[in-house]
Computed example of a mutant assay.
Amino acid sequence: MHNYLVNASIQILPIVQDKHPYEWVDEAIVVIQQSGIKHEIGPFATVVEGTYAEVMAIVNAVNEHLLSKNCSEWIASVQINMRSKSDITANEKVSKFGL
C-alpha cells in the first residue's frame, strides 16, 4: 500500500452485558490516544489520520486490546477514505464549514 495520508472512522460497538458498553469504548479510545496518531473523538466514532499502515495498526491494536481484556464480543466498524496518488485529510473535507 502507498504511504499517502488516509483518514478513517473507527467505531467500536460492544455486544456485552458484563459492564456498560461505554467502558469498553473508552478503553478503545485510550488505545487510539496512546498511539500518537492524529485523531478526533466524536460521539459515534473516532476519526484517525495517518498512513494506511498506521491506521490499520491502530485498528489491530484496538481489537487486540479488547481481546486481551476479555471483552466477550464487539463489532469494529471501520471506514477508510484514500486516494491512489495523494494525501487525503479530514481537514480538507470540513474546513469549508469552519471546522
Rank of each mutant, 00 (worst) to 15 (best):
V16P: 02
V31L: 05
L66V: 04
S72N: 05
P43F: 08
A45E: 10
V30D: 02
K93E: 11
E54G: 12
N70E: 06
Q33K: 14
A90N: 12
T89D: 05
K38R: 13
E23N: 08
L5S: 01
V78A: 00
Q34I: 09
M82I: 09
S77E: 09
V78L: 00
I80F: 06
H65V: 00
I37N: 05
A76C: 04
S35A: 07
K96G: 13
L99Y: 08
I88F: 09
P21L: 01
S86K: 11
E54F: 07
E92T: 15
V78W: 00
E54A: 09
V31K: 07
G98K: 14
I15D: 02
Y22C: 04
K19V: 10
H65P: 02
S84T: 14
E49W: 05
T46I: 07
G50P: 14
Q11R: 03
Y22L: 04
A57R: 03
E73Y: 03
Q33L: 14
T46H: 02
P14S: 04
K19T: 11
Y4Q: 13
E64D: 15
V59H: 03
A76D: 01
S68T: 00
E73M: 03
V62G: 07
I37P: 09
T89C: 08
A28C: 10
M1Q: 05
E49M: 08
A90Q: 10
V48C: 13
V25E: 15
T51Q: 11
I37Q: 04
S86V: 08
V55K: 00
I41K: 03
V48L: 12
E40S: 07
I41Y: 06
D87G: 09
Q17R: 01
V31S: 09
A8C: 14
V47K: 07
E54L: 08
A57P: 06
K85P: 13
E64Y: 10
A53F: 10
G42V: 09
I41R: 05
E23L: 10
A28S: 13
P14G: 04
A57M: 05
W74R: 10
V16N: 00
N3I: 00
